[in-house]
């Protein structure tokens, strides 16, 4: 059992290292979302409101990954929304920065990658 703990810890650490920067919310406290929070949106709201603010605006994409996730969940439902969220987290801040257009958001350059850029071929 003791031998297997490092594997689990490494996996958990990898998840945290890769996904938490990309869940950084660039719009702290400025979203005016509906008060009716869907069950699938609730964890994201918790993250945006109570966790994301701790490390500042770090997502290099626009919309931010948390916003993207919420839009994908609202547009395509829980299953496809979850898959698209995971896809975004895999791509965030890497090759997409070179391949997608840039946009100025509040004086900072971000890479423009909306939901419509990732579902145009089947939606």
């Amino acid at each position: 059992m003791l031998k297997k703990i490092p594997f689990i810890m490494v996996a958990a650490l990898m998840i945290l290292l890769i996904i938490t920067p990309c869940f950084a919310d660039n719009d702290h406290g400025k979203h005016q979302e509906s008060s009716a929070v869907d069950a699938f949106l609730f964890p994201i709201q918790i993250f945006r409101n109570y966790i994301s603010g701790a490390d500042g605006n770090r997502c290099p994409m626009h919309p931010s990954c948390s916003t993207y996730s919420m839009e994908a969940l609202k547009k395509h439902g829980p299953l496809m929304g979850w898959v698209m969220t995971c896809d975004r987290l895999l791509r965030c801040g890497r090759d997409e920065l070179k391949l997608s257009p840039s946009i100025m958001v509040r004086g900072k350059t971000r890479t423009y990658d909306p939901v419509s850029n990732n579902d145009f071929w089947w939606d």
């Binding site: 898959v83 896809d87 850029n117 990732n118 579902d119 145009f120």
Partner: peptide, 17 residues
């Protein structure tokens, strides 16, 4: 499972893009 499916979805979307 989400990340595995996201890996497949992302690759297909990347080919389309």
């Amino acid at each position: 499972a989400g990340f595995y499916a996201g890996n497949i979805y992302g690759a297909v979307a990347s080919a389309h893009k």
